[in-house]
Amino acid sequence: MNSPLLEINSITKSYQIAGQDVVVLKQFSMTVGKGEMVSIMGPSGSGKSTLLFILGLFLSPTAGTYSFDNRDVLQLNRKEQAGFRRNEIGFVLQGADLLENSTVYENVEYPLIYAQSKRSGRQKRIHEVLDQVKLSHRIHHSSNQLSGGERQRVAIARALVNHPSVILADEPTGQLDRENSLQVMNYFRAIAEQTETSLVIVTHDQQVAEFCDQIIIIDRG
């Protein structure tokens, strides 16, 4: 394994539901190296998505540690968390969430807007990432006019546009057919190899998981 990028140790996450503690993740640990592809598998309700949200700092764990590039990121305040997500993480969410009534270009541009990157360099970068996912010809199409596979590729381009250290993908192939699923996973593989970007992919699909360097199975936390 390459040098570790993110490391979580003994992470526990529990919720108070109707006055009772419900443990979703219990003493969970994992390490992801630079450029490594890791898949997280497990049955529904096993805490896969919760783990992804903790890695993206959307949720705080009840206990445990989380270090990213040797930084304790659990100590970051709300503003720093947003900066961390902007600069270090690319998200590919379940169902290829795109901004509706916006073009492919606009969808990919948003992370650059929030990173306050110069407008002069944006267009070039957006074309680069859309070329990577072979969607340059759809650049001015509305997100509503895209197929499921194309939407997922736009989401990948958007995740890549700020040069993240890690891409967190939640069921990226969940709504795609076999052909499109394989295409998406090939993109991920290429990204990991070419840019040393790490990938953490939550999936139900064994074939998708087998594309990865490491498979972690969670069973009820």
């Binding site: 959307f58 503003k79 947003a82 900066g83 902007r86 969410l93 969430d97 948003y110 929030y114």
Partner: peptide, 16 residues
């Protein structure tokens, strides 16, 4: 709501 969540996920701060 989902748009807001999405924008925050891709790096928007509260003030944005």
């Amino acid at each position: 709501t989902r748009e807001i969540g999405l924008k925050k996920a891709i790096g928007a701060e509260d003030k944005d």
